[in-house]
């Protein structure tokens, strides 16, 4: 089991038109210094290393509110064992979902969508479908979630973009059917607001 490299994963997302926030990979301090002014703040920092599967546990995730904080956090993270570089990503607002895939030996790619954030695994509010999943089916999956009303923004008037989210679900289904070498996918979280849905973090396992 191995995680697909960041640049390669990014290419896959682009190929399947899954959008993600502006994200740049830096492995040297002077590159960050040179470009720090070009970001819209706050930004997220996430460490990257081939053998790192759970970066939160090693202190490899952070949020910087300005340029100074970014540089400070960057140099600290680069010193963590196994870290090859740090991803700097502009922050997006919206509701968190998780979209993923698990390849079942009998049924092939099983596509998942669930309510994201810290409660993903506690509330276990998720729906599965065996691929292929059409856009219409993807919309049905979202409607079947217990948290559907929450996604509609019933209380806070901040609905997600269902169309864009369904497109991502279908894209993952198509991607999984074509790339048989990929055994698991996590887009976690996918952040969605009324305007758009983007995969803020992603993991492809081969």
């Amino acid at each position: 089991m191995q995680v697909i490299e960041f640049e390669e994963a990014k290419k896959l997302l682009a190929e399947y038109k899954i959008s993600f926030p502006r994200t740049v990979f830096y492995s040297a301090e002077k590159e960050v210094k040179k470009n720090a002014g070009s970001f819209k703040y706050p930004v997220f920092l996430k460490v990257y290393g081939k053998d790192i599967l759970h970066r939160t546990e090693i202190g490899g995730v952070g949020e910087a509110k300005d340029k100074t904080e970014l540089l400070k956090m960057f140099s600290k993270m680069l010193k963590i064992k196994g870290v090859e570089g740090v991803l700097v990503q502009e922050k997006v607002d919206g509701k968190s979902l998780i979209i993923g895939m698990k390849r079942d030996p009998q049924f092939g790619p099983v596509i998942m969508v669930g309510i994201g954030g810290i409660f993903t695994e506690i509330l276990k509010d998720f729906i599965l479908r065996v691929a292929p999943v059409s856009k219409e089916e993807a919309l049905n999956m979202l409607i079947e979630l217990k948290g559907y009303n929450y996604l509609c923004g019933k209380r806070d008037n901040q609905p997600i973009n269902f169309e864009e989210t369904a497109k991502i679900i279908t894209a993952i289904s198509n991607l999984a059917l074509k790339h048989e070498e990929i055994i698991e996918i996590d887009l976690n979280p996918v952040i969605s607001n009324a305007k758009k849905s983007s995969a803020v973090d992603f993991k492809f396992i081969i």
Partner: peptide
Amino acid sequence: AVQSHTGSMAGD
């Protein structure tokens, strides 16, 4: 053994 959230939730 699974390495993703999806894998851990989408059991057999």
